[in-house]
């Protein structure tokens, strides 16, 4: 199995318009929920939550 590297595993956002198609999106109500989702996804997916803007986090495997 090829390990996945440098890959967007999921996107956590409050503004789905900014997110490209073809990836897993978690649509959150507010920043607090977004942080909560991001923290859990980080631990589960072993990826880092990078912030592209206040509205979008991407979880990336390095």
């Amino acid at each position: 199995m090829m390990p996945i590297e440098k890959y967007i595993l999921a996107v956590v956002t409050t503004n789905p318009n900014k997110v490209p198609a073809g990836t897993h999106v978690f649509h959150c109500q507010d920043k607090k929920e977004m942080d909560h989702f991001a923290a859990n996804l980080e631990a589960i997916l072993d990826g880092i939550a990078h912030s592209l803007s206040d509205e979008v986090y991407i979880i990336v495997k390095h």
Partner: peptide, 20 residues
């Protein structure tokens, strides 16, 4: 600076989560 972590003027990485 925003989500970017710096040491002096050198960019290290982007950490999004406020807790982290």
């Amino acid at each position: 600076e925003g989500a970017g972590l710096y040491v002096d003027n050198i960019y290290i990485m982007n950490i999004g989560h406020p807790e982290r």
